[in-house]
Design a protein around this nucleic acid. Structure first.
Lengths: 133, 133
DNA sequence: TCCTCTCGTTTACACACGTAATCGACTACG
DNA sequence: CGTAGTCGATTACGTGTGTAAACGAGAGGA
């Protein structure tokens, strides 16, 4: 296990699941939204009902991943955690779990799985150049 | 939902969970092993009892991730899926799910999360050079 | 004012997962 | 030959997750 903070941790809350992540993406894309608006957006992609999306929103609120702000009679939902932080965290988790924290093997496996486009390669080259400075 | 192959797929079976992955790692490292042997190895790292490891082995057999071969009175377990395939698949899943299939953003986030050592960078550079040929 | 619609909250439920005890068959020592 | 140990299989159980219905309070039209 080794889940970093076992006790008090007022900051991040718990991990975001895959279904919750779909909701987060909508919120990251179009800032504060009502539950219905989120449901429309996510429901279209994933085929979820309004009730399902509401549940996911509640769970995200409980996990302190999003905040509610009253707007008239209903609430608007806004992300509390940055997309960058989430993506970086998840990426690091994968690298730690599967590759012992080393990014190079990950990269090698992506290459082997043909998950690298030439555009990717060019971009990564550019990033490397920056990192080396 | 959206599990790549909805119909026939005699090959891979279902997804391997995190706990099961720990068992797989032991099997990948030291080819055919008895349940007890696996339990010793994994139990040491994760603090699991013999019963727990046996359950995981059974589930892996059900998922056709490992095969059993009778050795005298007990069974020896051997991986059916290659470590490379698993790692590549999981990596691709993450890239698809979080980065729309593009590896470059993943790389950028790893860099930002300071998950890249200079050794990683050097290795990746070497890989890039190979890929470009 | 009353009914209906709409929100957010509460409760539900099946299945996956982590973790494990129990069971039935078989072996091997005494 | 019986009894204890070992092995794989079966069953168990709490929690997380995906998916959703039911409920209760407030808003707005009739």
């Amino acid at each position: 296990m080794a889940e970093a903070e076992p006790d008090i941790g007022p900051d991040t809350g718990e991990r975001i699941t895959e279904a919750e992540h779909a909701v987060m993406e909508v919120l990251w894309a179009r800032a504060p939204l009502s539950a219905t608006a989120v449901a429309h957006a996510v429901g279209r992609e994933r085929g979820w009902g309004l009730a399902t999306v509401k549940t996911l929103l509640s769970r995200l609120v409980a996990k302190q991943a999003i905040a509610t702000e009253p707007e008239g009679r209903r609430f608007l939902y806004t992300p509390l955690i940055a997309r960058t932080d989430y993506l970086g965290g998840e990426s690091k988790r994968l690298v730690d779990r599967l590759f012992g924290g080393r990014a190079a093997p990950l990269f090698a496996h992506l290459a082997e799985a043909e998950a690298l486009t030439s555009a990717d390669i060019a971009e990564i080259e550019a990033l490397l150049k920056e990192l080396k400075q």
